[in-house]
Protein backbone atom coordinates (compact mmCIF):
# COMPACT_ATOMS: atom_id res chain seq x y z
CA UNK A 1 0.00 0.00 0.00
CA UNK A 2 2.84 2.34 -0.31
CA UNK A 3 4.25 4.00 -3.33
CA UNK A 4 7.66 2.52 -2.80
CA UNK A 5 6.63 -0.11 -5.28
CA UNK A 6 6.76 2.49 -8.01
CA UNK A 7 9.43 2.03 -10.54
CA UNK A 8 10.36 -1.54 -9.77
CA UNK A 9 8.62 -3.05 -12.69
CA UNK A 10 9.93 -2.74 -16.17
CA UNK A 11 7.10 -2.14 -18.62
CA UNK A 12 7.15 -5.14 -20.85
CA UNK A 13 3.69 -5.23 -22.35
CA UNK A 14 2.62 -8.25 -24.20
CA UNK A 15 2.30 -8.05 -27.91
CA UNK A 16 5.31 -5.87 -28.36
CA UNK A 17 6.21 -5.91 -31.99
CA UNK A 18 9.83 -5.89 -32.80
CA UNK A 19 10.53 -5.04 -36.37
CA UNK A 20 13.58 -6.71 -37.76
CA UNK A 21 15.96 -4.26 -39.37
CA UNK A 22 17.68 -6.16 -42.12
CA UNK A 23 20.88 -4.22 -41.87
CA UNK A 24 22.42 -4.09 -38.44
CA UNK A 25 23.81 -0.61 -38.08
CA UNK A 26 24.36 -1.03 -34.34
CA UNK A 27 27.82 -2.15 -35.41
CA UNK A 28 28.66 1.49 -35.75
CA UNK A 29 28.27 2.24 -32.10
CA UNK A 30 31.27 2.44 -29.88
CA UNK A 31 31.88 -0.14 -27.18
CA UNK A 32 31.43 2.58 -24.58
CA UNK A 33 27.91 3.35 -25.65
CA UNK A 34 26.96 -0.26 -25.77
CA UNK A 35 28.00 -1.17 -22.31
CA UNK A 36 26.39 1.89 -20.86
CA UNK A 37 23.04 0.75 -22.13
CA UNK A 38 23.08 -2.12 -19.70
CA UNK A 39 22.36 -0.37 -16.49
CA UNK A 40 21.35 -2.08 -13.28
CA UNK A 41 17.75 -1.54 -12.32
CA UNK A 42 18.00 -0.64 -8.65
CA UNK A 43 16.54 2.79 -8.05
CA UNK A 44 16.35 3.08 -4.32
CA UNK A 45 16.93 6.56 -2.96
CA UNK A 46 19.95 5.42 -0.94
CA UNK A 47 21.70 3.69 -3.79
CA UNK A 48 22.61 6.77 -5.82
CA UNK A 49 26.34 6.44 -5.26
CA UNK A 50 26.23 2.71 -5.75
CA UNK A 51 24.25 3.20 -8.91
CA UNK A 52 26.76 5.64 -10.32
CA UNK A 53 29.50 3.15 -9.54
CA UNK A 54 27.49 0.43 -11.26
CA UNK A 55 27.00 2.58 -14.32
CA UNK A 56 30.61 3.70 -14.59
CA UNK A 57 32.49 0.60 -13.51
CA UNK A 58 32.08 -1.58 -16.56
CA UNK A 59 32.64 1.22 -19.09
CA UNK A 60 35.79 2.18 -17.20
CA UNK A 61 37.05 -1.41 -17.30
CA UNK A 62 36.26 -1.75 -21.00
CA UNK A 63 37.95 1.51 -21.88
CA UNK A 64 40.91 0.39 -19.83
CA UNK A 65 41.11 -2.93 -21.65
CA UNK A 66 40.78 -1.18 -25.01
CA UNK A 67 43.45 1.31 -24.01
CA UNK A 68 45.81 -1.51 -23.00
CA UNK A 69 45.14 -3.11 -26.37
CA UNK A 70 45.83 0.07 -28.35
CA UNK A 71 48.93 0.88 -26.28
CA UNK A 72 50.67 -2.24 -27.58
CA UNK A 73 53.41 -1.52 -30.11
CA UNK A 74 51.72 -3.50 -32.86
CA UNK A 75 48.31 -1.91 -32.46
CA UNK A 76 46.89 -0.77 -35.72
CA UNK A 77 46.26 2.54 -37.37
CA UNK A 78 42.54 1.84 -37.34
CA UNK A 79 42.27 1.55 -33.58
CA UNK A 80 43.51 4.82 -32.12
CA UNK A 81 43.98 5.19 -28.36
CA UNK A 82 41.15 6.61 -26.26
CA UNK A 83 43.32 9.70 -25.74
CA UNK A 84 43.50 10.30 -29.48
CA UNK A 85 39.78 9.71 -29.87
CA UNK A 86 39.11 12.07 -26.95
CA UNK A 87 41.23 14.80 -28.51
CA UNK A 88 39.52 14.38 -31.85
CA UNK A 89 36.14 14.40 -30.10
CA UNK A 90 36.79 17.74 -28.41
CA UNK A 91 38.27 19.31 -31.54
CA UNK A 92 35.47 18.13 -33.75
CA UNK A 93 32.32 18.55 -31.78
CA UNK A 94 33.18 21.62 -29.75
CA UNK A 95 33.44 23.56 -33.00
CA UNK A 96 31.34 24.66 -35.95
CA UNK A 97 30.74 21.08 -36.89
CA UNK A 98 28.32 20.80 -34.01
CA UNK A 99 26.04 23.22 -35.82
CA UNK A 100 26.78 21.88 -39.29
CA UNK A 101 26.48 18.16 -38.60
CA UNK A 102 25.09 17.39 -35.18
CA UNK A 103 22.19 19.80 -34.90
CA UNK A 104 20.72 19.06 -38.35
CA UNK A 105 20.92 15.35 -37.57
CA UNK A 106 19.15 15.80 -34.26
CA UNK A 107 16.56 18.03 -35.92
CA UNK A 108 15.72 15.39 -38.54
CA UNK A 109 15.61 12.78 -35.82
CA UNK A 110 13.20 14.84 -33.74
CA UNK A 111 10.92 15.70 -36.64
CA UNK A 112 10.95 12.14 -37.97
CA UNK A 113 10.26 10.61 -34.59
CA UNK A 114 7.51 13.09 -33.79
CA UNK A 115 5.80 12.54 -37.14
CA UNK A 116 6.05 8.77 -36.74
CA UNK A 117 4.55 9.03 -33.26
CA UNK A 118 1.70 11.17 -34.53
CA UNK A 119 0.93 8.94 -37.50
CA UNK A 120 1.48 5.74 -35.56
CA UNK A 121 -0.73 6.62 -32.62
CA UNK A 122 -3.38 8.32 -34.77
CA UNK A 123 -3.69 5.52 -37.29
CA UNK A 124 -3.27 2.94 -34.54
CA UNK A 125 -6.26 4.29 -32.61
CA UNK A 126 -8.33 4.31 -35.78
CA UNK A 127 -7.42 0.72 -36.62
CA UNK A 128 -7.74 -0.45 -33.05
CA UNK A 129 -11.24 0.91 -32.68
CA UNK A 130 -12.68 -0.23 -35.97
CA UNK A 131 -12.46 -3.90 -36.90
CA UNK A 132 -13.56 -3.29 -40.47
CA UNK A 133 -10.96 -0.64 -41.20
CA UNK A 134 -8.41 -2.92 -39.61
CA UNK A 135 -9.38 -5.87 -41.80
CA UNK A 136 -9.12 -3.67 -44.90
CA UNK A 137 -5.83 -1.99 -44.19
CA UNK A 138 -3.87 -4.55 -42.21
CA UNK A 139 -2.63 -6.71 -45.13
CA UNK A 140 -1.26 -3.63 -46.86
CA UNK A 141 0.40 -2.51 -43.66
CA UNK A 142 1.96 -5.91 -43.14
CA UNK A 143 3.46 -5.70 -46.62
CA UNK A 144 4.77 -2.18 -46.20
CA UNK A 145 6.19 -3.10 -42.84
CA UNK A 146 8.15 -5.94 -44.39
CA UNK A 147 10.11 -3.52 -46.59
CA UNK A 148 13.42 -2.66 -44.93
CA UNK A 149 13.37 1.13 -44.62
CA UNK A 150 16.93 1.73 -45.88
CA UNK A 151 15.94 0.53 -49.37
CA UNK A 152 13.72 3.58 -49.53
CA UNK A 153 16.78 5.81 -49.63
CA UNK A 154 17.50 5.35 -53.37
CA UNK A 155 13.82 5.81 -54.19
CA UNK A 156 13.44 8.84 -51.99
CA UNK A 157 16.53 10.43 -53.51
CA UNK A 158 14.72 10.32 -56.84
CA UNK A 159 11.37 11.39 -55.50
CA UNK A 160 12.27 13.90 -52.86
CA UNK A 161 15.84 14.78 -53.63
CA UNK A 162 18.65 14.62 -51.12
CA UNK A 163 17.35 17.19 -48.73
CA UNK A 164 15.76 16.80 -45.32
CA UNK A 165 12.46 15.54 -46.74
CA UNK A 166 14.12 12.36 -47.95
CA UNK A 167 15.85 11.71 -44.64
CA UNK A 168 12.79 12.44 -42.55
CA UNK A 169 10.65 10.21 -44.77
CA UNK A 170 13.07 7.35 -44.29
CA UNK A 171 13.01 7.83 -40.51
CA UNK A 172 9.21 8.02 -40.42
CA UNK A 173 8.75 5.04 -42.69
CA UNK A 174 11.04 2.92 -40.60
CA UNK A 175 9.97 3.76 -37.09
CA UNK A 176 6.22 4.20 -37.51
CA UNK A 177 5.59 0.43 -37.44
CA UNK A 178 6.30 -0.47 -33.83
CA UNK A 179 4.27 2.56 -32.74
CA UNK A 180 1.37 1.74 -35.04
CA UNK A 181 1.18 -1.95 -34.25
CA UNK A 182 1.58 -1.49 -30.52
CA UNK A 183 -1.09 1.19 -30.49
CA UNK A 184 -3.50 -1.11 -32.33
CA UNK A 185 -2.86 -3.86 -29.79
CA UNK A 186 -3.17 -1.47 -26.88
CA UNK A 187 -6.43 0.01 -28.12
CA UNK A 188 -7.90 -3.40 -28.81
CA UNK A 189 -6.96 -4.54 -25.32
CA UNK A 190 -9.01 -1.87 -23.55
CA UNK A 191 -10.93 -3.70 -20.84
CA UNK A 192 -14.59 -4.23 -21.83
CA UNK A 193 -15.75 -3.73 -18.25
CA UNK A 194 -13.95 -0.41 -18.07
CA UNK A 195 -15.35 0.51 -21.45
CA UNK A 196 -18.89 -0.29 -20.24
CA UNK A 197 -18.27 1.69 -17.08
CA UNK A 198 -17.23 4.70 -19.13
CA UNK A 199 -20.36 4.40 -21.27
CA UNK A 200 -22.60 4.16 -18.22
CA UNK A 201 -21.15 7.35 -16.83
CA UNK A 202 -21.59 9.22 -20.07
CA UNK A 203 -17.88 9.34 -20.91
CA UNK A 204 -17.91 9.55 -24.69
CA UNK A 205 -16.21 11.19 -27.64
CA UNK A 206 -12.87 12.90 -27.13
CA UNK A 207 -12.95 12.43 -23.35
CA UNK A 208 -13.32 8.73 -23.90
CA UNK A 209 -10.35 8.80 -26.28
CA UNK A 210 -8.22 10.85 -23.93
CA UNK A 211 -9.18 9.39 -20.57
CA UNK A 212 -9.92 5.79 -21.44
CA UNK A 213 -8.41 4.63 -24.70
CA UNK A 214 -5.09 6.45 -24.89
CA UNK A 215 -4.36 6.02 -21.20
CA UNK A 216 -5.33 2.39 -21.22
CA UNK A 217 -3.13 1.75 -24.26
CA UNK A 218 -0.26 3.88 -22.99
CA UNK A 219 1.93 0.99 -21.80
CA UNK A 220 1.87 -0.54 -25.27
CA UNK A 221 2.23 2.84 -26.97
CA UNK A 222 5.26 3.69 -24.85
CA UNK A 223 6.83 0.31 -25.63
CA UNK A 224 6.32 1.06 -29.32
CA UNK A 225 7.81 4.52 -28.98
CA UNK A 226 10.84 3.10 -27.21
CA UNK A 227 11.52 0.70 -30.07
CA UNK A 228 10.87 3.47 -32.56
CA UNK A 229 13.37 5.78 -30.91
CA UNK A 230 16.17 3.27 -31.31
CA UNK A 231 15.17 2.71 -34.94
CA UNK A 232 14.97 6.43 -35.59
CA UNK A 233 18.60 6.93 -34.55
CA UNK A 234 19.72 4.08 -36.78
CA UNK A 235 17.75 5.38 -39.74
CA UNK A 236 18.95 8.92 -39.19
CA UNK A 237 22.54 7.73 -39.64
CA UNK A 238 21.76 5.50 -42.60
CA UNK A 239 19.82 8.17 -44.45
CA UNK A 240 22.77 10.52 -44.08
CA UNK A 241 25.29 8.06 -45.40
CA UNK A 242 23.95 8.28 -48.94
CA UNK A 243 23.96 11.42 -51.03
CA UNK A 244 24.28 13.87 -48.23
CA UNK A 245 26.28 16.96 -47.41
CA UNK A 246 25.76 17.21 -43.69
CA UNK A 247 24.88 15.17 -40.67
CA UNK A 248 26.58 12.67 -38.43
CA UNK A 249 26.23 9.77 -40.82
CA UNK A 250 27.73 11.85 -43.59
CA UNK A 251 30.59 13.00 -41.33
CA UNK A 252 31.49 9.50 -40.23
CA UNK A 253 31.61 8.18 -43.78
CA UNK A 254 33.66 11.20 -44.85
CA UNK A 255 36.18 10.63 -42.06
CA UNK A 256 36.46 6.98 -42.95
CA UNK A 257 37.10 7.77 -46.63
CA UNK A 258 39.75 10.32 -45.77
CA UNK A 259 41.40 8.03 -43.23
CA UNK A 260 40.67 10.46 -40.41
CA UNK A 261 40.38 7.48 -38.11
CA UNK A 262 40.28 9.16 -34.65
CA UNK A 263 37.64 11.54 -36.00
CA UNK A 264 35.59 8.61 -37.30
CA UNK A 265 35.75 7.05 -33.85
CA UNK A 266 34.80 10.36 -32.26
CA UNK A 267 31.70 10.38 -34.45
CA UNK A 268 30.73 6.92 -33.31
CA UNK A 269 31.26 7.87 -29.68
CA UNK A 270 29.03 10.90 -30.15
CA UNK A 271 26.31 8.71 -31.67
CA UNK A 272 26.58 6.42 -28.70
CA UNK A 273 26.24 9.33 -26.32
CA UNK A 274 23.24 10.70 -28.23
CA UNK A 275 21.56 7.30 -28.08
CA UNK A 276 22.27 6.99 -24.39
CA UNK A 277 21.00 10.47 -23.53
CA UNK A 278 17.84 10.05 -25.61
CA UNK A 279 17.00 6.72 -24.09
CA UNK A 280 17.57 8.17 -20.60
CA UNK A 281 15.25 11.05 -21.40
CA UNK A 282 12.72 8.61 -22.72
CA UNK A 283 12.91 6.60 -19.55
CA UNK A 284 12.28 9.76 -17.56
CA UNK A 285 9.15 10.56 -19.55
CA UNK A 286 8.03 6.95 -19.40
CA UNK A 287 8.41 6.93 -15.63
CA UNK A 288 6.04 9.87 -15.41
CA UNK A 289 3.51 8.55 -17.90
CA UNK A 290 3.53 4.95 -16.71
CA UNK A 291 4.04 5.33 -12.98
CA UNK A 292 0.57 3.94 -12.38
CA UNK A 293 1.25 0.97 -14.63
CA UNK A 294 4.46 -0.03 -12.89
CA UNK A 295 2.74 0.24 -9.53
CA UNK A 296 -0.22 -1.77 -10.77
CA UNK A 297 2.02 -4.55 -12.01
CA UNK A 298 4.01 -4.58 -8.80
CA UNK A 299 0.77 -4.70 -6.81
CA UNK A 300 -0.47 -7.64 -8.88
CA UNK A 301 2.71 -9.56 -8.33
CA UNK A 302 3.19 -8.70 -4.69
CA UNK A 303 -0.24 -9.05 -3.15
Amino acid sequence: MSRTTLGQAQPTPENTHTPSPKADPTEQESPVARTRRRRPGNRGPAGAALRTAHVLLLPAVLIGVYWAFTAQPGAGFYTPTPAAIGTAFVELWFSDRFFVDVLPSLGRLAVGFALAALIGVGLGVLLGLDARVRATIEPVLEFLRAIPPPVLVPLMIMLAGIDDTMKITVIVFGCVWPILLNTVEGVRAVDPVLSDTARCYGITGTTRLRVLILRSASPQIMAGLRLALALAIILMVISEMFASSSGLGFAIVQFQRTFAIPEMWAGMVLLGIIGFVLSSLFELVEGRVLGWYRGLRAAHRGE
Binding site: T197, C200, S218, Y293, L296
Partner: peptide, 14 residues
Protein backbone atom coordinates in the same frame (compact mmCIF):
# COMPACT_ATOMS: atom_id res chain seq x y z
CA UNK B 1 -25.20 4.46 -12.27
CA UNK B 2 -23.78 0.96 -12.34
CA UNK B 3 -21.50 -0.85 -9.92
CA UNK B 4 -19.91 -3.86 -11.57
CA UNK B 5 -18.69 -7.03 -9.97
CA UNK B 6 -15.17 -6.63 -11.31
CA UNK B 7 -14.10 -3.65 -9.24
CA UNK B 8 -10.50 -4.05 -10.35
CA UNK B 9 -11.53 -3.61 -13.95
CA UNK B 10 -14.12 -0.90 -13.56
CA UNK B 11 -11.85 1.71 -11.96
CA UNK B 12 -9.37 3.79 -13.93
CA UNK B 13 -6.01 2.51 -12.74
CA UNK B 14 -4.25 5.67 -13.94
Amino acid sequence: AVVFQEYGRSLFAW
